[in-house]
Simulated scan of single mutants.
Amino acid sequence: MTFLENAKNAAAAAAVKDCVTKNVRIIGIGSGSTVVYVVKNLAIKVKEENLDLVFIPSSFQSQQVLLESGLKLSTLTETPILDIVFDGADEIDCHLDCIKGGGGCLTLEKINASCSKKLVIIADHSKLSSVLGEKWKKGIPLEIIPVAYIPILAKLKELGGKPELRMAVAKAGPVVTDNGNFIVDVDFGLIHNPQALNQKLINIPGVVETGLFLGMAKKAYIGLIDGTGPIRPVAPKQEVIEDCVEGLKKKVLGLPIEGSTKASQEQRNPPLSILRASFEGFKALLR
């Protein structure tokens, strides 16, 4: 096993150990190479602890991996509320926003994630970036209605993107998703405002779903370069905002810390470095 594969396995093992608790029974499974390691570790845990878990796949691939591992399958029709979803990512930034869909399964992956109480992303270190578009250079995947692909390509160019219809490797013609649709990959370079871009993309008639997974992940496990892991990136934006607010209350407004009745001199007159760090933190959230 290579360092990269070891990293994926280490991250998957840690995620399964930490997140599959006694309150978790219905688990969604994403798609991609990392999911294989997630399912392997889940199968071991189910067998060793004699757990009664059910799994909802997001693609033909993940369904086959689950079946081969002897795990119990369900559907969103039978179990519409999931306790947790494990999935990979093509790229993940420091706020846990992701680009997904390199495997063409973005729509069902996003549906599963939206039905879950918690989305956990598992990836190797090569997928972690400071801003979306920094590492993943193939563009944002879009699942689209086939008859609309020509006008959609034109509208994407008007938005400043460089779209390409994804072509199949082992068949003639374009990639066809599990839902019978096409995939367009559109390059916008570095994405400093993914929320605004996502809204513009999803508003194009004929676009079924985008590969931007924003504000959905609650936790991420990232395998390290030497094959060990995991590490967790910075918390999602809301948690960062709350930390910044609390920090400003304590350091700038001079409020008591942890129940103390009197603010310290440092709180009332915060060092310049603290003020600068707080300001830079808020600027980063607004990018």
Rank of each mutant, 00 (worst) to 15 (best):
L275V: 10
S31D: 06
L190R: 12
V54C: 09
V186I: 11
F282D: 02
V54I: 14
F86I: 08
M1D: 09
L66Q: 00
V85N: 01
D187M: 10
M1E: 07
G104N: 10
L96E: 00
K171L: 06
T21F: 09
D243P: 00
Y221E: 07
E280F: 08
K138M: 15
L66F: 00
L53F: 12
D185M: 09
L156K: 01
N181M: 13
V208T: 14
K118I: 01
I145P: 02
P146W: 03
E49A: 15
V176T: 15
A154H: 04
N269Y: 14
I152S: 01
E68H: 14
I204Y: 00
T77M: 04
D178Q: 10
L119V: 06
L153M: 14
L53Y: 08
E109R: 13
L214E: 02
P230L: 08
T77F: 06
Y149M: 05
V36S: 01
E280C: 03
G223H: 07
K171A: 05
N203Y: 02
S126Y: 04
V175R: 13
S114V: 04
N23V: 02
D187P: 03
D52F: 06
S273W: 04
K155H: 02
P236V: 08
V54Q: 04
Y149D: 03
I27L: 05
N9R: 15
G259Y: 09
A277K: 14
L272M: 06
S114K: 05
E266C: 09
F86R: 11
V39I: 15
A148W: 02
K47T: 12
E134P: 06
K118L: 12
L142Y: 10
D187N: 15
I257K: 13
S69C: 12
L248H: 08
I140W: 01
V54E: 03
I26R: 04
S130A: 09
S69Y: 02
T79Q: 13
A14P: 00
K137A: 12
I152V: 11
V24T: 15
A220V: 12
R232T: 13
K17P: 00
S278K: 02
G254Q: 07
F60Q: 10
G88N: 08
K162A: 12
A113Y: 03
K218P: 00
N50G: 03
V240A: 04
I140T: 06
G180T: 13
L159Y: 01
K137Y: 04
G206Y: 09
L159E: 02
A11H: 05
F188W: 08
Q199I: 08
V20A: 07
Q267Y: 08
E258Q: 13
H192A: 05
S260N: 14
E266Y: 09
L67A: 12
E258D: 15
F60H: 07
V175I: 15
I274T: 13
P174A: 07
Q64V: 09
G101L: 10
G88M: 11
C98D: 04
K22R: 13
Y37W: 15
T77Q: 07
L67S: 11
D83R: 08
I99E: 02
L4R: 15
M167A: 10
P271V: 13
P230N: 06
L71D: 03
G247Y: 01
S278H: 11
V46G: 09
A43G: 08
S278G: 15
L73Y: 06
K249F: 10
R25G: 09
I122Q: 03
L159I: 06
